[in-house]
Amino acid sequence: MADDASTPYALTDPEKLLQPSVLFIEDDPRIGAITSEILGEHYRVDWVTTGAEGRSRLFGMTYDVAIVDRRLPDADGLELVREARGSGITTPVLMLTALGSVDNIVEGLDYGANDYLTKPFHFEELEARLRALLRGYRAEQKSYDIGDWRLLPQSGMIESPDLQRVTLTRAECTLLTTLCSSPQHVFSRAELLRIVFSESDTEGTIDTYVSYIRQKTTRHIIDTVRGHGYIIGEPRD
């Protein structure tokens, strides 16, 4: 199954937390397995095989870059990218496809893809293109406003209303960024375990890190939705 190939964040592997995260949407089991294994040396790869699951991950989680196959069993990868761009998702996208004509490439770029790589491809080229996308994306220094606070994911900092910067751990920053990526979504503890830590950890891990973040910032930086999970707050300090 695709989830078996994904690499979760793990408290026991802090070096892995520093690697860029990749959403890989590819239905071919051979290409998916080999590519995930090779990229897994330098990236945290989340491999899924359908457009529906890819959409759920792209819209509900935070990734540094996405690789999207053009022809999926239940969707057109271009439509998925266009929908993401229309929803304000700026994750850089590398379109992966066997359709390599100039018209196909232009269409992919017009739909919102940042780059286009045709099959078959060399893994060295794939990794070079990913590095280029990441350099451009990180140069933008994306930030999130959380009420009167501002999260700066690339620097691992959160800025208070009086412009004091607080340093977050990688896990704390990833947890906050995940919540910020879908501000209207209530994340269950199980979702957050899968995204930020590991499904082998207990749900109490989430509660512990929410407490850490609140202690460093303010109580309402993250709101508890009783019986459901957590949602990003709107603190006004």
Rank of each mutant, 00 (worst) to 15 (best):
D3F: 13
D3H: 15
D3L: 15
D4M: 13
A5K: 15
T7N: 06
Y9I: 12
Y9F: 13
T12H: 13
T12P: 10
D13G: 03
D13L: 09
D13Y: 10
K16I: 11
L17K: 09
L18F: 12
P20H: 04
E26Y: 05
R30S: 13
R30V: 15
R30I: 15
E37L: 14
L39G: 00
L39I: 11
L39P: 03
Y43P: 04
R44G: 08
V45D: 00
V45R: 01
T49A: 12
G54I: 05
R57A: 10
F59W: 05
M61E: 13
Y63P: 01
V65D: 02
A66Y: 05
A66V: 04
I67G: 03
V68W: 02
L72S: 00
L72E: 03
D76L: 09
L78Y: 06
E79T: 14
L80H: 00
L80C: 05
E83S: 13
R85H: 00
M95K: 08
T97K: 07
T97Q: 06
A98H: 10
I105N: 06
I105S: 05
V106N: 11
V106C: 10
V106L: 10
E107M: 12
E107A: 12
G108C: 06
D110S: 14
Y111A: 15
G112W: 00
A113F: 09
T118Y: 03
K119E: 04
F121C: 02
F123H: 12
F123R: 03
E124G: 14
E125T: 14
L126Y: 00
R129K: 11
L130T: 00
L130H: 09
L133Q: 04
L134P: 05
Q141W: 08
Y144E: 08
I146M: 01
W149I: 00
R150G: 04
Q154I: 13
S155P: 00
I158R: 00
S160F: 06
R165N: 11
R170H: 14
E172F: 07
C173N: 14
C173F: 06
L176K: 02
L176F: 09
T177C: 10
C180K: 03
C180G: 09
S181D: 08
S182I: 03
P183W: 02
P183H: 01
H185S: 06
H185N: 11
V186R: 09
R189D: 06
R189W: 09
E191N: 12
L193D: 04
R194F: 07
R194P: 06
I195P: 01
V196H: 05
F197V: 03
F197K: 08
D201T: 10
T202L: 11
E203S: 14
G204R: 13
G204N: 10
Y209S: 01
Y209I: 07
V210K: 00
I213C: 00
R214D: 03
R214I: 08
T217S: 01
I221E: 05
I221A: 01
I221D: 01
I222Q: 06
G227Y: 07
H228A: 14
G229H: 03
G229W: 07
I231K: 05
I231S: 07
E234T: 14
P235A: 02
P235I: 02
